[in-house]
Simulated assay, not measured.
Amino acid sequence: MILHNRVNKDVLKEQLQNSTEKRITISFYKYVKLENPQEYRDQLYADFFKLGVYGRIYVAHEGINAQISVPDANFDAFEKYIDNSPELSGERLNIAVDDNGKSFFKLKIQVRHKIVADGLNDETFDVTNRGVHLKAEEFNKLASDPNTVIVDMRNHYESEVGHFENAITPDVDTFKQSLPIIEDMLKDKKDKNLLMYCTGGIRCEKASAYYKHRGFKNVFQLEGGIIEYARQVKSQGLENKFKGKNFVFDERLGERISEDVIAVCHQCGQSDDTHTNCKNDGCHLLFIQCEKCAEEFEGCCSKECQDVIHLPEEEQAKIRKGINKGRQVFKKGRSEKLAFKK
Rank of each mutant, 00 (worst) to 15 (best):
F125H: 12
K206N: 07
K189D: 14
P146S: 14
E183I: 08
V151D: 01
V111M: 11
F125P: 09
A207E: 02
E165Y: 05
K141N: 11
M196H: 04
C204A: 14
L107A: 10
Q177D: 10
I95S: 11
N94Q: 14
I109P: 02
G131E: 06
I168W: 02
V116S: 03
K108T: 02
A96S: 14
V172F: 00
D152I: 01
N193Q: 13
F104N: 03
R214P: 05
T128Q: 15
H156I: 00
R154D: 00
I115A: 05
S159D: 01
S103H: 07
I181M: 13
A207W: 01
N140W: 09
Q177R: 05
F175K: 04
G215W: 08
A136L: 08
I95Y: 11
H156V: 00
F105M: 10
K102E: 07
V111R: 10
R214W: 04
V97Y: 08
N193G: 12
K114I: 07
Q110Y: 04
K192S: 13
C198N: 08
F105C: 12
E165W: 02
V172Y: 00
T128I: 06
N121M: 08
D118Q: 10
R154K: 09
D99M: 07
V149M: 06
I182M: 08
N100K: 12
C198H: 06
K106T: 13
K102Q: 13
G162L: 00
T199F: 01
P146R: 10
R112M: 14
Y210S: 08
K192Y: 09
R130F: 09
E137R: 13
L107T: 09
R203T: 03
E160F: 01
F105A: 08
I109H: 06
T128N: 15
E160I: 01
